[in-house]
Design a protein around this nucleic acid. Structure first.
Lengths: 349, 349
DNA sequence: TATAAAATTTTACGCGCGTAAAATCTTGAA
DNA sequence: TTCAAGATTTTACGCGCGTAAAATTTTATA
């Protein structure tokens, strides 16, 4: 666009020059860019007319240098290679833009030192606020706590007790109770398949929910813990399944996985061993899971799972962050908000 | 860290104050932060000693406002929900940091208007350079061309002829020739399974490579084009497979997919229809593909595919961008560099 | 029409740092 | 020891914009 008019118009270097050509004083122009509705309608028209003709954009560095609070928002997810986090990040990103913020996405890539580095860098960004999905168990709690003391932060997906101004996530009990009840209603009660040392605190909540639900139903719970560290859940689920199969097989014909990525690994291992999964006659067992991972509809068989309410979590997270920023960065007390799951029935159970 | 010493040390507000406490003039301190080796060793020691005691960090906005060229680098990928792009982005990110840049990741999320918006925003970032994997066919060529005229840009993954200072990607011919030759050597020649209107220009190169390779081998090529728009390749591959199966089935017992994500959809459709895929006896057909998508080892069966040289592409992209920046943003002529594939044999073919 | 109150604009100043040019210090050879 | 060339540091200025306070205009009321 610039190029097209290049012959006609002189280049605008700064706000002063733009103010000159639009016939308004520079500070008024500055006000306009901070909030167009803060200047008189007639003034706004003049500026917008000039804007069409001259295509000027304020220097973001000069803006942010002087403004006490920027409109930057940092979005930090623990592991971007997991499409679940991409999806939730995408929605949060869009809602931040709608709310007038300038979001930037970061991934800790599963590494605690990267998480700390990102928060460290985020400090110098002077963000209005940060939406943080922490690594969880591996997180440097102290570092995150210090960060949250300095920067208004809303945690999402994974809760760190007492840290951040608020937490928005999914109700793990809702996930598990729905899947367990469905499985019990339609067949044998499930055993619970999870990592022995899960990266994510949601995993612990899910185990507890499984135990509670089974007890409530008067059934004997059975937890299978598999080895493995880190964020390569699929591979961990796969190797764990091989080991279980080699050591005598699963104790029930119904398996509830802590999360979809473990289930993906489990399904691949079952397939490789020629074990058919599903509700049908020739099936060795049923498998259900939690998260509604974007790929869970393409597994073999497609995965019955409890779906996050992506929209509610992302919408509410950004809304709370907006409130937090408006409130000056502090809430009278920390809040936690959880959204229920929606059971998605597919072929695996 | 700041908090720990809070009682002992006064807070450093700006470079002047830091210069005062370290006994050096502010401009010299400025030089140090731009390049520590540009000040005398004795001066450097003084600064670094003060740095330990006072934990001061220059204001990035003030820095970037005055510096003609920032150290920012934009990394733009077309679709972050595809773990392939996450992986390549992660590696590029790390290499940018190693090269002294400050990378920021953006995703066009498959939408051309977002791609343009990102480039627009990137302008005001005054980046030293940009690494761009364009959407491809859907890209606004004109907008990207204008951007590349103003900002030093290296294209990667998807080439847009003549645009950008350089292109670094994978050699699609190497991918296809290896998979085709392997399939022909070990069984029936493959038909080629692809989208009728692929989003990505690599798809066209792959089709051409398939046709060439089959001709070279004296075999009759056979291209199956399936409908579908956008970036939901798995779903497109799945539905396309259902249609083909409903309309009489595949014409050969060997299928080469243009990319892994289509193959994932194809495999899920085959599974649902009870068609076994693989080399073994009871298998309806063999399926091979291209990309070595991070999930291709977890498909059922695991996917035989041609792998990108992630490391070579990311390393070379960043290296060329470094050169480009050093050269002042322009090369005497545009270069294209392609890296060969590595065949990964798994269970599907 | 006059005038006080409210809304808006302008004046005036500073933010934190980069950088050219001037001043100073090192270094090494005479 | 001296002194010039080279290396380093300091002086001096400006970048582009935010923002409090002052000045002005608009609006509402009498």
């Amino acid at each position: 666009m610039t190029k097209v008019h290049a012959l006609k118009i002189p280049k605008i270097k700064n706000m002063q020059e733009f103010a000159d050509v639009s016939g308004i004083s520079r500070p008024t122009v500055s006000k306009y860019f901070n909030d167009p509705s803060s200047v008189r309608a007639s003034t706004r028209e003049k500026i917008e007319k000039a804007l069409e003709a001259y295509d000027y954009r304020p220097n973001i560095y000069a803006i942010n240098q002087n403004r006490a609070l920027t409109k930057n928002v940092g979005i930090v997810v623990p592991f971007l290679a997991d499409p679940f986090f991409v999806e939730i990040a995408r929605q949060i990103e869009q809602r931040c833009i709608d709310a007038g913020f300038r979001p930037t996405l970061f991934s800790s890539h599963g590494e605690p030192h990267l998480e700390v580095e990102i928060l460290d860098m985020l400090r110098s960004f002077k963000p209005a606020g940060v939406l943080l999905a922490p690594l969880g168990r591996a997180s440097n709690r102290e570092a995150i706590e210090r960060f949250c003391a300095d920067v208004p932060t809303v945690l999402f997906d994974s809760n760190l007790e007492g840290i951040g101004a608020a937490f928005v996530g999914s109700d793990n009990f809702s996930f598990i109770s729905q899947t367990v009840e469905y499985l019990c209603r339609t067949g044998e009660p499930p055993c619970f398949f999870e990592m022995a040392t899960p990266a994510n605190p949601n995993a612990n909540k899910r185990r507890t929910a499984y135990l509670d639900t089974m007890n409530r139903l008067g059934l004997e719970p059975l937890v299978l813990k598999i080895d493995g560290e880190g964020w390569a859940f699929e591979e961990i689920g796969r190797q764990g399944t091989f080991r279980i199969l080699d050591e005598g097989g699963f104790p029930t014909n119904t398996i509830l996985c802590s999360n979809d990525r473990l289930a993906i690994g489990l399904l691949s291992a079952c397939y490789e061993r020629g074990l058919r999964v599903g509700r049908g006659g020739g099936c060795a067992f049923r498998v259900a899971s939690n998260d509604d991972h974007p790929f869970s509809r393409f597994t073999c068989p497609s995965l019955t799972t409890a779906a996050h309410d992506y929209e509610a979590v992302s919408t509410r997270s950004v809304q709370i962050l907006s409130d937090l920023v408006r409130a000056g960065g502090h809430f009278p007390e920390r809040t936690e908000e959880l959204f229920p799951a929606r059971l998605v029935l597919r072929e695996s159970a």
